[in-house]
Design a protein around this nucleic acid. Structure first.
Lengths: 179, 179
DNA sequence: CGTCATTGTGCAACTTGTTGCATAAGGGCT
DNA sequence: AGCCCTTATGCAACAAGTTGCACAATGACG
């Protein structure tokens, strides 16, 4: 049940059309809840039917005609409730760890290459996050909203740091004693 | 496409019935690819039809009668291919980060409690992993298989360490300057 | 003997996310 | 006018995971 809330959050920050939302997802909320335009349109429809958002007047709706949505009070309340909800962390589900486990059974041929490839990807993501931090969060601007947004970004940074660290050690461990 | 491979891995370690698999998942592979018995039965059916596994003879199959499966050569080859496959990391999808982001917009009431609750859960998971490490991986037993399995476990440990660290800092940051 | 809990297998419906494609308006180019 | 590219909305089919329940065999208990 996260996508509708992600959309509500984005719409509260700024009323938008479906495609605009999709684009903003790509460079902010999408970092930890990616979504395609198809899914977003589908969800916008549901949210509208539920009375959580509505189409801004001014633009008449026709197919291929942009529709701007804004959040209604009911939507905001729904979102507030969701923030304080008790919801357990999702179970980890990681194919790379699984493949490493499989490699313990059928041999690790080809695995090291994958580890290096993933390491490069995670390093790139980490660099991207660090750039955003530098650009959008210069030291000492601490409104409540900024503190929270910065914490979220820190989460991303720390997560990628974990991956790069673990992958580096894993590659060393596989290469080292083996060859 | 990970669940079938998880099952192949588990069956290679030891031929099992559906329920046995489910139980072993709960305490090993399931740590990073959880699955229910329903899903496992469904997937066993598909794997059998694909010729990757087969029912061990000896026990005749009837509803409510246990069926032991074992991996066929084709299944092993499938698994080996999968290990070296190029497969990108799954996109991160984390509701807690999303909720924190939402809190930046609608206020962080109730969020701190959730952070503390998650911290406790991650600490518990970390403790469980550390216990397994101590029990199953005493220092200096380095067959290739053990090295790989230990790396996987290390992944889990490092991941939970990331969470506990980040959550601790986040709670401090929210509590501290705010009150 | 009946029935009741446990073990084991499995179907069906639903939700969420993915992939591929269809449709429509508008602007620029020839 | 005719064509094509971009912007924009959206449907449909599929894949994967979740939830709830049904059915069958078996052994324990009264």
């Amino acid at each position: 049940m996260s996508l509708p809330h992600a959309i509500l959050t984005a719409l509260l920050e700024k009323p938008s059309s479906g495609l605009e939302l999709t684009r903003r997802f790509d460079r902010s909320i999408g970092y930890f809840w990616p979504s395609t335009h198809q899914q977003i349109y589908r969800e916008l429809g549901k949210l509208e039917k539920a009375g959580h958002i509505r189409v801004l007047p001014a633009a008449q709706p026709a197919r291929g005609q942009r529709k701007e949505y804004e959040v209604l009070p009911a939507g905001r309340e729904e979102l507030m409730a969701w923030v304080s909800l008790a919801e357990d962390p999702r179970p980890v589900r990681d194919p790379l760890l699984l493949r490493m486990r499989a490699a313990a059974v059928v041999g690790s041929a080809g695995l090291a290459g994958e580890l290096r490839r993933h390491l490069a990807l995670h390093r790139a993501q980490l660099a991207e996050y660090l750039e955003i931090e530098e650009r959008d969060f210069p030291p000492e601007r601490t409104s409540d909203e900024d503190r929270l947004r910065r914490l979220v970004l820190r989460g991303g940074i720390d997560l990628e740091t974990f991956w790069t660290g673990w992958l580096t050690r894993a590659i060393d461990d596989l290469d080292g004693p083996g060859s």
